[in-house]
Deep mutational scan, measured.
Amino acid sequence: AEEIWQQSVIGDYLARFKNDRVKALKAMEMTWNNMEKKEKLMWIKKAAED
């Protein structure tokens, strides 16, 4: 689920960090860890469908 979420937001994060992939990935990891369980559930369901 986290991978699907990352694939959907990586472009936004890379743009925000001027294509600094290391910073973008760290920010994504922090965002994922801070997400509410119900927000993650949507992505977990999406992962299950694929």
Score class of each variant (00 low, 15 high):
1 A>F: 04
1 A>N: 03
1 A>G: 14
1 A>R: 02
1 A>H: 03
1 A>P: 08
1 A>Q: 03
1 A>T: 03
2 E>S: 10
2 E>Q: 13
2 E>K: 12
2 E>H: 12
2 E>T: 05
2 E>A: 11
3 E>L: 14
3 E>A: 14
3 E>S: 13
3 E>V: 13
4 I>Q: 07
4 I>E: 04
4 I>V: 10
5 W>R: 01
5 W>N: 01
5 W>E: 01
5 W>T: 00
6 Q>T: 07
6 Q>R: 13
6 Q>G: 10
6 Q>V: 09
7 Q>C: 12
7 Q>P: 01
7 Q>N: 10
7 Q>V: 07
7 Q>Y: 05
7 Q>D: 09
7 Q>E: 09
8 S>P: 00
8 S>E: 07
8 S>V: 10
8 S>L: 08
8 S>W: 11
8 S>Q: 09
8 S>A: 13
8 S>K: 05
8 S>T: 10
9 V>Y: 03
9 V>C: 05
10 I>E: 04
10 I>T: 03
10 I>N: 02
10 I>M: 11
11 G>L: 15
11 G>A: 13
11 G>P: 04
11 G>N: 12
11 G>H: 13
11 G>T: 13
12 D>Y: 08
12 D>M: 08
12 D>W: 08
13 Y>L: 03
13 Y>K: 00
13 Y>V: 03
14 L>S: 02
14 L>T: 03
14 L>K: 02
14 L>R: 01
14 L>W: 02
14 L>P: 00
15 A>W: 08
15 A>C: 10
15 A>Y: 09
15 A>D: 11
15 A>N: 08
16 R>G: 04
16 R>A: 11
16 R>T: 06
16 R>Q: 10
17 F>I: 02
17 F>K: 01
17 F>D: 02
17 F>N: 06
17 F>G: 01
17 F>Y: 11
18 K>C: 12
18 K>D: 15
18 K>I: 05
19 N>G: 14
19 N>T: 03
19 N>P: 06
20 D>G: 01
20 D>R: 01
20 D>M: 02
20 D>P: 00
20 D>H: 04
21 R>I: 15
21 R>V: 13
22 V>Y: 09
22 V>N: 13
22 V>T: 11
23 K>E: 12
23 K>T: 11
23 K>S: 11
24 A>E: 01
24 A>Q: 01
25 L>R: 07
25 L>I: 10
25 L>P: 00
26 K>H: 13
26 K>G: 07
26 K>E: 14
26 K>A: 13
27 A>D: 05
27 A>V: 07
27 A>H: 06
27 A>I: 05
27 A>F: 07
27 A>Y: 06
28 M>L: 06
28 M>A: 03
28 M>D: 00
28 M>Y: 01
28 M>Q: 01
28 M>R: 00
28 M>S: 01
28 M>H: 01
29 E>F: 06
29 E>W: 07
30 M>A: 15
30 M>G: 07
30 M>V: 15
30 M>Q: 14
30 M>H: 14
30 M>N: 14
31 T>E: 14
31 T>R: 07
31 T>M: 06
32 W>L: 00
32 W>S: 00
32 W>A: 00
32 W>P: 00
32 W>F: 02
32 W>H: 01
33 N>F: 08
33 N>S: 11
33 N>G: 08
33 N>E: 12
33 N>Q: 12
33 N>T: 09
34 N>M: 09
34 N>W: 04
34 N>F: 05
34 N>D: 09
35 M>P: 00
36 E>G: 13
36 E>R: 05
36 E>A: 12
36 E>C: 06
36 E>P: 15
37 K>G: 13
37 K>P: 15
37 K>Y: 15
37 K>M: 15
37 K>W: 15
37 K>L: 15
37 K>S: 14
37 K>F: 15
38 K>Y: 13
38 K>H: 15
38 K>D: 15
38 K>W: 14
38 K>N: 14
38 K>M: 10
39 E>F: 04
39 E>G: 02
39 E>Y: 05
39 E>K: 03
39 E>A: 04
40 K>P: 00
40 K>Q: 05
40 K>N: 02
40 K>E: 02
40 K>M: 03
40 K>C: 03
40 K>H: 03
41 L>F: 07
41 L>D: 15
41 L>Q: 08
41 L>S: 06
41 L>W: 06
42 M>E: 15
42 M>H: 15
42 M>I: 15
42 M>C: 14
42 M>A: 13
43 W>H: 03
43 W>P: 03
43 W>S: 02
44 I>D: 07
44 I>A: 11
44 I>F: 10
44 I>T: 05
44 I>R: 04
45 K>M: 10
45 K>I: 13
45 K>E: 14
45 K>L: 11
45 K>C: 13
45 K>T: 15
46 K>I: 11
46 K>W: 07
46 K>S: 06
47 A>P: 02
47 A>E: 05
47 A>T: 04
47 A>N: 04
48 A>P: 03
48 A>Q: 13
48 A>D: 07
48 A>E: 13
48 A>T: 11
49 E>R: 11
49 E>C: 12
49 E>L: 11
49 E>I: 09
49 E>Q: 09
49 E>T: 12
50 D>I: 15
50 D>M: 15
50 D>H: 15
50 D>Q: 15
50 D>L: 15
